[in-house]
Simulated assay, not measured.
Amino acid sequence: MIVRHMKDIIGSDREVETDEFISRRIILKEDGMGFSFHETIIKAGTDMFIWYANHLESVYCISGKGEIEVIGGETYTIEPGMLYGLDGHEKHYLRAEEELRLMCVFNPPLTGREVHDENGTYPLLD
């Protein structure tokens, strides 16, 4: 059984921070669960292009307000209690009107050090 506390993840190598977000990687590939699980804080004012060409992602909003604009599709308001699943590798813009606190699941699981490349993609790492 795996038991983790956020206080132990903050400031560790399982926390990745960029200008746009803070990703706290709670469950990773090395944990052998078949997915990874993250708390992600999207900073207020962020407008990011993302394309998970190599991963599927589900996102559940805990707090804040923003939107996801699917390129060639609809725009959805993100607010507490809303979940979206990127089951088709959708290219999208993620915008945070207020700081967003999101819980995210990735398949295949992340290793823990990924950051978005120039295409808004996480590479597949071993």
Rank of each mutant, 00 (worst) to 15 (best):
E114R: 04
T111R: 01
Y93G: 15
E57Q: 09
I9Y: 11
P108Q: 03
S23H: 12
M82F: 09
V115P: 01
P108K: 01
R14D: 06
F35I: 03
M103Q: 09
T75Y: 10
E99A: 10
P80N: 13
D47N: 12
G64A: 09
D19T: 04
G45I: 00
E98N: 14
I50R: 08
I68A: 11
V70K: 15
I22R: 14
I9E: 11
I9V: 03
H92G: 06
E69N: 14
V59N: 11
E114K: 05
G34P: 02
F21I: 02
E98Y: 10
G81W: 01
H55C: 01
I71E: 15
E79L: 06
R24M: 04
W51Q: 14
I68D: 12
K91S: 11
T75N: 10
L83M: 09
P109H: 03
K29Q: 07
G66T: 03
S58K: 08
N54C: 00
S58T: 14
E15W: 05
I27H: 06
T75R: 13
S58C: 06
E90H: 15
W51Y: 12
H89G: 02
Y76S: 02
Y60A: 08
M6Y: 08
I42Q: 14
A53I: 07
T77M: 02
G45W: 07
S63K: 14
G32W: 06
I22Q: 07
T75K: 12
R95C: 10
I50L: 08
F37S: 12
T18Q: 14
V115W: 07
I78P: 07
D117Y: 11
Y76V: 00
L86C: 10
E57H: 06
E97S: 06
I50A: 13
A96M: 01
D8W: 11
K91Y: 05
E69P: 15
Y84S: 02
Y84C: 00
K7Q: 14
H38C: 04
E74M: 04
R14W: 04
F37R: 05
H92T: 04
R25A: 01
I62P: 00
T46P: 11
L100Y: 08
C61L: 12
D8M: 01
P109D: 05
T40N: 14
I71D: 14
G64L: 08
S23V: 01
D47H: 09
G66S: 05
H116G: 01
E114V: 03
H116F: 05
A44E: 15
H116I: 00
M33D: 08
V70W: 15
G88T: 09
G64H: 07
E114D: 07
P109E: 02
E69C: 10
T77V: 04
K91V: 00
P108N: 03
M6Q: 13
P109Y: 02
I41V: 11
D87Q: 10
I10D: 12
A96G: 13
M6F: 01
D19V: 00
E90V: 00
T18H: 13
T40Q: 13
R14C: 01
T77Q: 14
C61W: 05
G88S: 12
G85M: 08
L56M: 03
D13W: 05
C61A: 13
L94I: 13
I9H: 13
D19H: 10
L110G: 04
G34S: 06
L86T: 10
L94S: 15
T77K: 11
S36K: 02
